[in-house]
Amino acid sequence: MFKTFSCRVLVLLIAYQINISHAIGVIGGVKTTITDHPYVVSLQLANGTHVCGGALIKKNIVVTAAQCFVFQDPAQLYVRLGTDSYAADGELLSISSYIINENFDFTTMDSDVAVLKLAKNVAKSSAKREIKVAGEKPKTDRSGVVTGWSQSRQLEDVTVRIINAKKCRSGEYVYNKDDITDNMFCAQAYNRFVCDGEPGSPLVYKKKLIGLVSWGYGCGNVGNPAVYTNVNKLRKWIKKTIKKL
Results as ranks from 00 to 15, higher is better:
residue 89 D to H: 02
residue 145 V to H: 09
residue 51 V to D: 01
residue 101 N to S: 07
residue 5 F to A: 08
residue 225 P to L: 11
residue 168 C to M: 06
residue 235 R to M: 03
residue 192 R to V: 04
residue 228 Y to V: 02
residue 164 N to D: 15
residue 163 I to Y: 02
residue 225 P to D: 12
residue 16 Y to C: 11
residue 125 S to A: 11
residue 200 G to F: 03
residue 25 G to A: 02
residue 113 V to F: 01
residue 234 L to C: 11
residue 146 V to D: 05
residue 167 K to T: 15
residue 204 V to Y: 09
residue 154 Q to V: 12
residue 52 C to K: 01
residue 151 Q to G: 13
residue 69 F to M: 00
residue 14 I to D: 14
residue 111 S to G: 04
residue 239 K to R: 12
residue 91 E to L: 14
residue 189 A to W: 06
residue 51 V to L: 06
residue 1 M to E: 11
residue 130 E to L: 06
residue 49 T to W: 08
residue 5 F to R: 10
residue 207 K to D: 15
residue 48 G to N: 13
residue 62 V to E: 07
residue 235 R to E: 10
residue 95 I to R: 01
residue 160 V to R: 10
residue 81 L to R: 05
residue 216 G to Y: 01
residue 126 S to G: 15
residue 219 C to I: 15
residue 140 T to W: 01
residue 32 T to Q: 03
residue 134 A to N: 12
residue 43 L to V: 05
residue 137 K to A: 09
residue 96 S to T: 15
residue 183 N to K: 11
residue 138 P to R: 04
residue 103 N to L: 10
residue 138 P to V: 00
residue 169 R to G: 03
residue 239 K to L: 11
residue 152 S to T: 15
residue 64 T to Q: 05
residue 68 C to P: 04
residue 235 R to P: 02
residue 106 F to A: 09
residue 53 G to I: 02
residue 134 A to L: 08
residue 9 V to F: 14
residue 177 K to W: 13
residue 118 L to F: 05
residue 232 N to Y: 15
residue 124 K to Q: 14
residue 117 K to V: 03
residue 38 P to T: 08
residue 27 I to C: 06
residue 206 K to P: 00
residue 115 V to A: 07
residue 161 R to A: 13
residue 226 A to M: 13
residue 97 S to K: 01
residue 38 P to Q: 07
residue 153 R to P: 00
residue 171 G to P: 05
residue 16 Y to T: 14
residue 147 T to E: 05
residue 71 F to P: 01
residue 204 V to N: 02
residue 214 S to C: 05
residue 51 V to G: 03
residue 108 T to V: 13
residue 227 V to G: 00
residue 58 K to G: 07
residue 139 K to I: 07
residue 67 Q to S: 12
residue 94 S to T: 13
residue 73 D to P: 05
residue 141 D to T: 07
residue 178 D to T: 15
residue 142 R to T: 15
residue 156 E to M: 11
residue 143 S to R: 15
residue 126 S to L: 12
residue 185 F to I: 04
residue 26 V to H: 08
residue 104 F to L: 07
residue 53 G to F: 07
residue 108 T to Y: 02
residue 198 E to Y: 13
residue 34 I to P: 02
residue 164 N to C: 12
residue 21 S to K: 13
residue 79 V to P: 03
residue 8 R to W: 03
residue 189 A to R: 08
residue 215 W to Q: 07
residue 163 I to D: 01
residue 3 K to S: 14
residue 102 E to R: 08
residue 186 C to A: 08
residue 137 K to C: 07
residue 67 Q to F: 05
residue 103 N to Q: 13
residue 4 T to A: 09
residue 109 M to Y: 13
residue 50 H to T: 06
residue 42 S to K: 09
residue 221 N to E: 12
residue 227 V to C: 05
residue 87 A to T: 14
residue 94 S to Q: 13
residue 227 V to N: 00
